[in-house]
Amino acid sequence: MEFNPSNNVVKLSLLGMGMEEKGKPEEAIKLFLQAWNEATDDQEKFIAAHYVARHQKNASDKLKWLETALLFALNLNNDAVRSAFPFLYLNIAKCHEDLGNPLKAEEHYALAASFKDNPSDKGPFYHGTRADLRVGDLLTPGENSNYKPELKMNHIYFTALVNGAGLAAALAKGEGSERVYVVEPTGSFENDPNVTDKKFPGNPTRSYRSQSPLRIIGEVTDWERMDPEELRKWRERLANHKGDIIN
């Protein structure tokens, strides 16, 4: 199932993260539990359980929710969640350590170490912007951030979800039309750490970044546009976001 920013569980998770940033953990856990109760498929349950886990007061309850999140992640076992496995196994190991289960802790530390965070995603890949570009042009790092104009970005960002690139285009600075280009990485790339585990567990948006240029190989026009109210809320979240960008 493709990650959808209009999904109700995703929206509840975003609201919960907003409460966390405002220093309101009690309000955050209410929203995450609501997301869990409304989740209907493995991806939604995986996301919700991840957030519920990190608000548990003791190691036993935290372990229960982490193992629940892991169960649904294993059911999915795709590029969207694979990068969450080291994080999940590491935190499960810490819980076992706190509970006095050294053998279980050692087992899960080893599982965490066995996963290498190298994306296996084969694409196709997309980049959303308002720039008017042509096939063969190169997108390179070094531009100012759309979200913090004073920050010059060390990477160029892209995604394997066309609707995610469409959202990026809608949020991009500038007066030009929203454009979504099909791109080809010219070098190695990594999971975008601003998404992976910092916000959503794993990489459900299949968002990546590279220090090497992206070559434009085509353009798409048929992505799902957000309605003006949803777009306004996204701009509001970005404007109120106080966290740092991992550059």
Rank of each mutant, 00 (worst) to 15 (best):
G128H: 03
G128T: 08
T129L: 05
T129H: 00
R130C: 02
R130D: 03
A131T: 06
A131C: 10
L133D: 01
L133V: 06
R134C: 04
R134S: 15
V135M: 06
G136R: 01
G136V: 06
G136P: 06
D137G: 05
L138R: 02
L138H: 04
L139C: 10
L139Q: 03
P141E: 00
E143P: 04
N144S: 11
S145L: 04
S145I: 07
S145F: 11
N146L: 10
Y147N: 05
K148Y: 13
K148H: 14
P149Q: 00
P149V: 06
L151I: 13
L151C: 09
L151Q: 08
L151K: 12
K152S: 12
K152F: 01
M153A: 07
M153L: 15
M153Q: 08
N154S: 13
H155S: 14
I156D: 06
Y157C: 13
F158G: 03
T159M: 00
A160G: 11
A160M: 13
A160H: 11
L161Y: 08
L161D: 12
L161A: 12
L161P: 12
V162H: 02
V162I: 15
N163G: 01
G164C: 14
G164T: 12
A165S: 13
A165W: 13
A165D: 08
A168F: 14
A169I: 03
A169F: 13
A169T: 02
L171A: 02
K173T: 12
G174Q: 04
E175H: 15
E175S: 15
S177G: 08
S177D: 14
S177R: 14
S177W: 11
E178V: 15
R179Y: 05
V180A: 01
V180C: 06
Y181M: 13
V183T: 07
V183K: 02
T186A: 09
S188W: 01
S188K: 00
F189V: 10
F189Y: 15
F189S: 00
E190R: 09
E190F: 14
N191D: 14
N191W: 13
D192W: 06
D192L: 09
D192P: 15
D192Q: 14
P193H: 10
P193E: 08
N194F: 01
V195D: 11
T196K: 05
D197W: 07
K198H: 12
K199G: 07
K199H: 07
F200C: 07
P201A: 15
G202T: 02
G202L: 04
Y208H: 11
R209T: 00
S210M: 11
S210F: 13
Q211P: 05
S212W: 03
P213V: 05
P213R: 00
L214I: 08
L214G: 04
L214T: 05
L214E: 08
R215S: 04
I216R: 03
I216G: 03
G218T: 10
G218W: 10
T221Q: 11
D222Q: 07
W223T: 01
W223Q: 03
E224W: 12
E224L: 11
E224N: 13
R225C: 01
R225G: 02
M226Y: 13
